[in-house]
Structures are given as C-alpha cells and as structure tokens.
Design a protein around this nucleic acid. Structure first.
Length: 268
DNA sequence: GTCCAGGATCGGA
DNA sequence: TCCGATCATGGA
C-alpha cells in the first residue's frame, strides 16, 4: 500500500519530538511500533510505502498518520502571517504530521520525558516496553498495558533509569488500571476539561498534559511550551507569543517551531 | 566539576 | 499569580 502526499516526511515526523518509537532502520526506511504492530515505512520522494495489508492501512494507519487532514492548507495559513521564523519553520518541516498515538503510552512517555533529553527518553520508553510489553516481532516489544505496567513496583521502574519519575509512572499506571482514570474520557471532553482531568494525575502538569492532548487526543489547539519553545518565544518574540491567531491548529504550528529550532541547534 | 534536559511539585512571598 | 528549591540520571 502506498500514499502520495507532499506533506508526509518520515524523517521529519520521527524527529519532531512527538513520538519516541519511530526510528530510521536504513536510508529512507523507518519503523514505528504502535497498535501492537511493528510497521515499516519507506519514503520515495513524496510517496510513502506502507509495508502492511490494505486492511491495516485502512483500519489503523490512515487514521494514525492523520491522512484526512490537509497540512498544505495549514502551512498556507501560517505563511500568511509573513512571520519569518514561522515561514522558515514550515519550509523545513513541511512533512510533519501530528500522529494519533495511544493515550496510555503517550501519558507514560511524557511523564518520563520531564527533565530528560530526547535520545534518553527513547531509550527509557524502549526499556519499559522490553520489560513489560509483549514481543510482537523479533526483539520488538509493544508498549505494556496499564494492568501489566501497574504490576511493576517503583523500585523496579527505578532500576530502568527512570529516576524520580518512577513513582509518578507507578501511580499513573495504577490509576488507569484501577479505572480511577478513564483514558477514553478526554476524547469526549473539551480541551480545557480534558487538561484539568489529566492534571489530576501526579506528575502531569501543564506541559505534559498539553503533549498528551495533542499527540494522543489530537486536540490541536494544545500548545505545549517546553524549554525549547521558551527559548524561541524569548529569542524571536520578545517573550510573548499569541497562539489564539492559529486557533485549533496552534499545536501543529508548535510542532513546526520546535522542529525548526532543533534543526538550527544541530539537534536533529 | 558544572551544566542541562520536550517539568512538576511544594512552600512561601 | 509567580518564584525558588528540589527532585534522578547521564551526557557534554
């Protein structure tokens, strides 16, 4: 199965900071673990080749890669601002798309992410999968279910290198496993309702909640502000950035900004 | 040895 | 509402 779309770039998506289990396995070829599958994708110009059945493409991946959304239109609107940083950002990140990732995996991954560099986050998420997930392919593990991860003690998690986040993760997994937190609920909530709901989980503050809302629930008005976004806003916008003008796609704009800043800092 | 990372929490002003 | 200290860990 293949898709032709000039706003679909595997490298840009993999390096945009939204997912931690998408990796380059050879030139132009990427793997991503999601939905209990190890999908392989190949980029040929503006064509993406999906190594999967038509059924999986239609039932899973079309939605996962947000293929119903016209990103060219979003970029067009961003360019109308004539904001040079944003124009450069869209020119370099034209193929970024906001994925629709699993809420539990996204919750745990972004609790893990606090005060850590991206390569280490990827390593730790992999550690969690290898220790508590299922082997779905040779040496490839799915992300654990809430029940399975809830069986891990704080000490066990700490040994994986999760540091002070171990107690947050153990607690979050228990809350979800015990149905004290229902991760299906935010889909039916407004952005601010869902944000408040997620923040009742210990270790989830404003930024992590925004990441979960954007990358799992596709609430694209969410605008996560981390250290890099703070640097951009400080250096390029005098400390103030108006997200309201981008309405319900501010989160996509954030992704272009984050990616572009990190390219300029030679981190991608 | 020092600084920093896709921050959150707490106490106190 | 905002500020500073504190929280593990590893890489530069």
């Amino acid at each position: 199965m293949q898709v032709k779309n000039s706003n679909f770039n595997l490298s840009q998506i993999a390096n945009s900071g939204q997912c931690f289990r998408m990796n380059e396995i050879s030139e132009y070829k990427y793997s991503i673990v999601a939905h209990g599958k190890n999908l392989k994708l190949t980029q040929k110009g503006d064509t993406i080749i999906f190594d999967c059945s038509d059924e999986d493409f239609n039932n899973i991946w079309f939605e996962y890669f947000d293929l119903a959304t016209d990103y060219a239109k979003i970029i067009e609107n961003v360019k109308k601002t004539r904001d040079s940083f944003l124009v450069d950002a869209t020119r370099n990140g034209y193929g970024i798309r906001i994925l629709k990732q699993d809420p539990f995996e996204t919750l745990i991954s972004f609790i893990t992410s606090q005060q850590m560099r991206i390569p280490r986050i990827k390593l730790l998420v992999k550690n969690i999968a290898e220790n508590y997930g299922e082997e779905i392919d040779y040496d490839v593990y799915s992300f654990p279910t809430p029940e399975k991860l809830a069986s891990a003690t704080e000490t066990e998690l700490s040994k994986l290198g999760l540091g002070y986040r171990s107690k947050y993760i153990a607690n979050a997994a228990k809350k979800v496993a015990d149905n004290e937190i229902d991760l299906s609920k935010p889909f039916d909530m407004s952005y601010s309702e869902a944000k408040s709901y997620l923040k009742t989980i210990d270790g989830v503050g404003s930024k992590v909640a925004d990441c979960i809302l954007l990358y799992a629930y596709h609430k694209t008005e969410a605008f996560p502000i981390d250290v890099w976004m703070k640097k951009i806003i400080g250096e390029e916008y005098g400390g103030r950035f108006d997200t309201a003008r981008f309405g319900d796609y501010a989160g996509v704009v954030q992704q272009y900004m984050f990616y572009w800043k990190r390219i300029k800092e030679n981190l991608v």
